[in-house]
Amino acid sequence: MSLTNDQLQTVAHLARIAVEPEWTEALRSDINGILDQASRLDDPRLNELEPMAHPLDQVQRLRPDSVTETDQRETLMEGAPAQEQGLFLVPKVIE
């Protein structure tokens, strides 16, 4: 299975990563190299196996539905690239 240029553009858009035109061909070839290895997964022994999502086959532990974290808004906002009055700033979304 190999990736076409159009597919690469679609995936790049889904991942919100701009791929510079001069990188496209090399990137496509790298990704296809990785996908070539994935052909090993066509092995028929895998057909009947149960997919494994967790290395210890554990299920997600639940905790009581209660507030445990304290309000850290000011501290957390300090890492924001742009902010005003405690709000994150982004380019205008609504015209």
């Binding site: 889904l14 701009a18 990785i34």
Partner: peptide, 18 residues
């Protein structure tokens, strides 16, 4: 994301997204 991530990270994100 294009400027902030290096090539290997972008490659893996793209493979994973695919």
């Amino acid at each position: 994301r294009s400027e902030g991530f290096g090539s290997e990270v972008k490659r893996r994100i793209l493979v994973g997204t695919y």
